[in-house]
Amino acid sequence: MSEPDSRIIVYTCNWSAYSGLETAGSQGLSYPANVHPIRVMCLGRLHPGLILKALELGAAGVLLLGCPPGECHYLFGNTRAEELFQQTLALARLLGISEKRLKLDSLASGQGQHFVTLVRQFAEQAIGESRAAGQEVP
């Protein structure tokens, strides 16, 4: 892993979670500057590699925000996201990385405040866990 970091990567799906993020923006809500959202069309197109890559590059944590259960735009993306997240957790465990640095959650369209709450809570938890693992977090 590269330099210790406090960056938090948030993968959002295009349809629900990203809309929640946009709502947060249009409502003028602020979230920590170390949170870096990356929009993908669907969480189901992610791969354990893309999540581990963020950790390899030094991110403190990776949060996956997708559509609420049953509301996936592509019908099966939620299931795929859950599968790949479980694969990632298993690999992270083998690599000695705390499960608390990874999270899969959902966000409905327009939930701006909820987006801010989720990323704040996760950032605090993941950075705390990185520190506990002996990484200096700036």
């Binding site: 892993m1 992610l46 791969h47 354990p48 590699g49 893309l50 581990l52 890559k53 950790l55 390899e56 690999l91 465990r93 083998l94 690599l95 000695g96 002996g134």
Partner: peptide
Amino acid sequence: HCSHGATIQTWMRMMADPSLKQNRLD
């Protein structure tokens, strides 16, 4: 072009970190 989102190459690179404390014997 690495298949599987380069997952395998990524864990290999992560293992190159001497400070990594793994949990691989469960």
